[in-house]
Nucleic acid binder design. Structure first.
Lengths: 404, 404
DNA sequence: AAGAATTAGTATGTGTTCTAAACTATATAG
DNA sequence: CTATATAGTTTAGAACACATACTAATTCTT
């Protein structure tokens, strides 16, 4: 993810300066309030001449749009407003255990044309599922096309350990997939996308969605924990996803929270997942109807909680207690002081929150403040927003790719 | 530590290219085996002309030395060997609870002129201790001077949370210091050092020493855990220290390893420190003589272990068991797959190792391999080597600072 | 022993991209 | 209607890497 080897680093060429400055100027052009060339020059330290030249090239890429004169009402010649062009966007898609989700996000951050389909994907083959996904994607892509949008790239998020550079799924335990090569399918999703379609982990993407479009926008550094069938997570620090040397960072599901606890599917013992995963909570709540899907049983849990069922409430509070321990330990290791919770933790927020706060206070007073515990509001669109956003950032970081 | 804000980034100027390439070329010049201009050109992708020009400037800085023709025995004109100049070095110093350590490390990585003084610093004031340290530093600096060495910078490591940019100690619980301003003293340690003298955390510095001069050289990414009066740690990933958004990353001492365990001085419960810190181990081993220093009692523990005392052995194994849990949890969060253990964990290695390995295997089979558990061999010189090394890296990363 | 072949390193001219400073353009103030 | 302020462009100059052609020093071949 990060630069690996100081020794293998490429040499700096004179042209690199321009590439860097193109991205720098583009970074000062927000989605909304128009910036002017003069303002950008003052903010970046570049001369007005350089900014003019750089902006001219950015206009050529189509990422930036001139809005006409800004009425300042002040003395002097008014500047020409510049803003990101909302007609450029990216596709985001997600395959999860019990739904497919697809959408288009534009450079202003708006989600347009999204569609969520509830399907049971566990056990079905990857090709079958991706074919169904492709049909939804086609509808979204042509809707964007009809509206005059240009898609720069896209992303597909899956609840799996992936190799983004090869477009392969290494292991998706909850889908039952191993070593699936999605590269051919990815290429076809957004025809002619200059920034490609990239495979990503669902929790990582959701974590980034919170950073760019959700509860993390004001935080910058936080741990994202998503409760699904498993317990996944992503680590955002300094407004960047940290995925670790091997790409597994933020995997809080297998932190040991109870040394004398149950054995876990990972081979360990007392992992968070064994006490706060969906199956664990459902079992503790006594909701054991094996015939229906996990999603349906989670709905039943909601109903029990609403009805004030003590066993259900105790089960959720127990999960929150251990969740607190895992968060505290994570916070110590990477020094983050905020958390964003998604998946079923967000759905169960009213019951999770108090128990979680008292657990945090008991095990590490003062480390994570009450205001620093946030619950996701993005629902099933989190991961697709994240991968689409990542595609947009790839474009914003390398605008020169769009020039001849 | 890392670049914070994409928006506040400085613009790229043409001269930045040269700065980058100076550091790039310097990075290819190792301490030992001489590199030639032609080899560097091939390795970096720069042209021979550019490399010649860059090397000429590096020679001016004094960091690099020409060794004369390399006898290759092959056809063609032999190249001129280039190597880092071992006459350039940096000072490293450490104030710890029961000793002071000072040394000089040269650009070849050799430790020269080092001195360790056993003194009880707990409770003494910072000024008093630093004055004593300064006398030792003076001896080392003049020894280096006499040998014709030039010191580029230095570092002072303390078992404390520090603000390196201000040169202040925020809190050193085990020394009993709070809000001590060491900036004036630091400035005077290495007169005229172009890269300054920087305050650092002892565990972080020791972690870096392992990376550059110890057990971490072949690892690249690992968790360093140091057992002292407290339990500290440092996180090295991708051959860089990761200190987290607030600078506390790697603080494994307060990971929760036993939810029903004892209260901790941090206000939490069941932290690693409450079961694997020196006092905790001594108490469990029944070595309770309150009159002598902690260091002396740790020596007594060693003696008991050597004598086969079951209570002592059980106490150490229990600590190792919990240490394993903390390592596993850390490994999950940041995705590292190796550990280096220092401080009393290194001293007790023969007793720690087997218990630790079985704990790792029980809680996360396959995550940390047996070969990936290493014990430090740097002893009391670890932290000083680390801070000195950091000063040397500052010079190697910014050689242009040494030019007019 | 002389020349061919091979490799190391230097010199010169060109293109890119920045800065600085002077210039043009367009607004408000009085 | 002129002075002033601000936005943006034009032009000249400097830094730097690249490409190419050159010189230097060594070994191989005959």
């Amino acid at each position: 993810m990060r630069e690996q080897d100081g020794a293998t680093k490429a040499p700096g060429r004179v042209g690199d300066v321009r590439r860097r400055n193109l991205a720098l100027v583009l970074g000062r052009i927000g989605p909304e309030e128009p910036a002017t060339r003069a303002e950008i020059a003052a903010a970046t330290g570049l001369t007005k001449a350089s900014v003019s030249s750089l902006v001219a090239e950015l206009l050529e890429t189509g990422l930036v749009d001139e809005l006409g004169v800004t009425r300042a009402g002040e003395r002097g010649r008014p500047g020409v407003g510049l803003a990101l062009d909302a007609r450029r966007g990216a596709l985001g898609a997600e395959v999860n255990v019990d739904y497919l989700a697809v959408g288009v996000v534009d450079l202003h951050g708006s989600l347009r044309y999204h569609e969520v389909a509830e399907t049971v994907n566990r056990g079905r083959g990857p090709n079958d599922v991706v074919a169904e996904l492709s049909r939804i994607v086609e509808r979204c892509v042509s809707a964007a096309d009809d509206a005059g949008m240009t898609l720069l790239g896209g992303g597909l998020a899956v609840p799996a350990l992936v190799d983004p550079s090869r477009g392969t799924i290494l292991n998706a335990p909850n889908l039952g997939w191993r070593n699936a090569d999605l590269a051919p399918a990815l290429g076809g999703l957004v025809p002619g996308a200059p920034f490609g379609v990239v495979l990503s982990n669902e929790a990582d993407s959701a974590a980034l969605a919170e950073l760019w479009y959700g509860r993390g926008t004001s935080l910058g550094s936080y741990l994202y924990v998503s409760g699904e069938v498993g317990v996944g997570g992503g680590l955002v620090m300094g407004s960047e996803l940290f995925s670790g040397p091997g790409g597994h960072a933020g995997e809080v599901g297998h932190i040991v929270v109870e040394p004398t606890g149950q054995r876990c599917s990972c081979g360990g013992r007392g992992c968070l997942e064994t006490v706060a995963g969906q199956e664990a909570i459902l079992a503790a709540a006594g909701i054991t109807d094996g015939g229906s899907t996990t999603a349906a049983r989670m709905a039943a849990l909601q109903a029990s909680l609403d009805a004030g069922d003590t066993q259900a409430i105790t089960a959720v509070e127990r999960a929150a207690h251990y969740l607190g321990i895992a968060i505290v330990s994570s916070a110590r290791v990477v020094d983050v002081s905020a958390v964003v919770l998604g998946g079923h933790f967000a759905a169960l927020a009213p019951w999770i929150r108090p128990a979680l706060l008292s657990s945090l206070e008991a095990f590490a007073p003062g480390v994570i403040a009450e205001e620093a515990v946030a619950f996701s509001e993005l629902g099933t669109t989190a991961a697709l927003r994240g991968t689409a956003g990542a595609a947009l950032r790839r474009a914003l970081a390398a605008p020169y790719e769009l020039l001849a």
